[in-house]
């Protein structure tokens, strides 16, 4: 029902605009792209969708994501009409994030973290789209994934979605302060922290019982630490200042600077957030139940 409503909401303005306009979506609000630029950073799109090491153009895709299921090559998300997402409608865009579906209806592999992004609000999604539309189009073609069967069988992905995808968005918890709700949204929806910090089941779904408890077999075969409030192992011993400074600069309490995938997250994403948003992330993480 919700989906029907969503589609109706997205197509209604079109119908009203009628005549003159072609099959294009309504023009986004004036501040959409500017808001979208912030969403873009908070959601960390740039890192995965750019083959930085090989000198690839920003957002033109091609970066290899090595996972236990095989190697994914990220797609081009520039506004190029052929190889990018230039022809996508607003509804196409929202559906990809919300339901993990391509415009042609085929399922997207969950290497695109829609199990997290599904929690994004419609407004944030459409603003993000408005921002992406302002980026230079690059015609770089997409590279096929290199996956191990059965993970390469796209027709099985809907079953995976049935198991592991709970379409969002998730309403705020009125019993909790606004900063906590904002923090949860940044951690679970935009930041998609659980995609690396939550261990996966054999079928590759995030294991909800071990939410943010660390992943021994993370991306690029790295071990990913526990970020629950566990003392000693997680972040239970870190102060709010420790957490916000880490998110801002990558500095850990012992003066080390994080590298690896988190270094990239800090560089592309968390260092660019507002101080209030970093504080919200810290406030939320401190309430995540301890797991060993």
């Amino acid at each position: 029902m919700r989906r029907v409503l969503l589609r109706a909401a997205l197509t209604l303005p079109l119908a009203l605009a009628g005549g003159g306009a072609s099959a294009a979506d309504p023009a986004p609000p004036a501040d959409a792209a500017a808001r979208g630029a912030y969403i873009f950073q908070a959601a960390g799109c740039l890192g995965c969708h750019t083959d930085e090491k090989a000198g690839g153009a920003p957002l033109a895709g091609g970066r290899a994501l090595v996972t236990p299921f095989g190697t994914f090559y990220t797609p081009n998300i520039t506004p190029d009409p052929v190889n990018g997402i230039g022809r996508w409608t607003d509804a196409d865009f929202v559906r990809a994030f919300r339901e993990g579906k391509r415009p042609d209806g085929a399922a997207l592999f969950p290497a695109f973290p829609y199990a997290s992004y599904t929690r994004m609000t419609d407004r944030d999604l459409l603003d993000l789209k408005a921002f992406l539309a302002t980026q230079p189009a690059v015609s770089a073609p997409n590279k096929p994934h290199d996956l191990t069967p059965p993970f390469s069988w796209r027709f099985l992905v809907p079953a995976w979605q049935w198991l592991y995808l709970t379409p969002g968005p998730v309403p705020d918890d009125p019993a909790k302060p606004p900063a906590w709700n904002r923090g949860r949204y940044l951690v679970d929806a935009l930041g998609h922290c659980g995609e690396c910090h939550t261990p996966r089941s054999v079928l590759g779904g995030m294991d909800g019982d071990r939410y943010l408890a660390g992943n021994p077999d993370g991306p690029d075969k790295d071990k990913v630490p526990n970020i629950t409030s566990t003392k000693g192992k997680g972040i239970g011993d870190l102060s709010d200042g420790d957490l916000t400074l880490l998110l801002e600069t990558g500095l850990t309490p012992d003066g080390d600077v994080v590298g690896g995938a988190m270094g990239e997250v800090v560089r592309n994403s968390t260092s660019k957030l507002t101080a209030a948003d970093r504080a919200a992330i810290a406030a939320y993480l401190k309430t995540v139940p301890a797991k060993n």
Binding site: D222, L245, L251, V257
Partner: peptide
Amino acid sequence: IAQALGATSKTCGGCHEDFRVKKN
């Protein structure tokens, strides 16, 4: 100071990102 500390961390982090094997 916070800003300069961030800038200094960045000079450390670049190499940690590219040249350091993940610690356990």
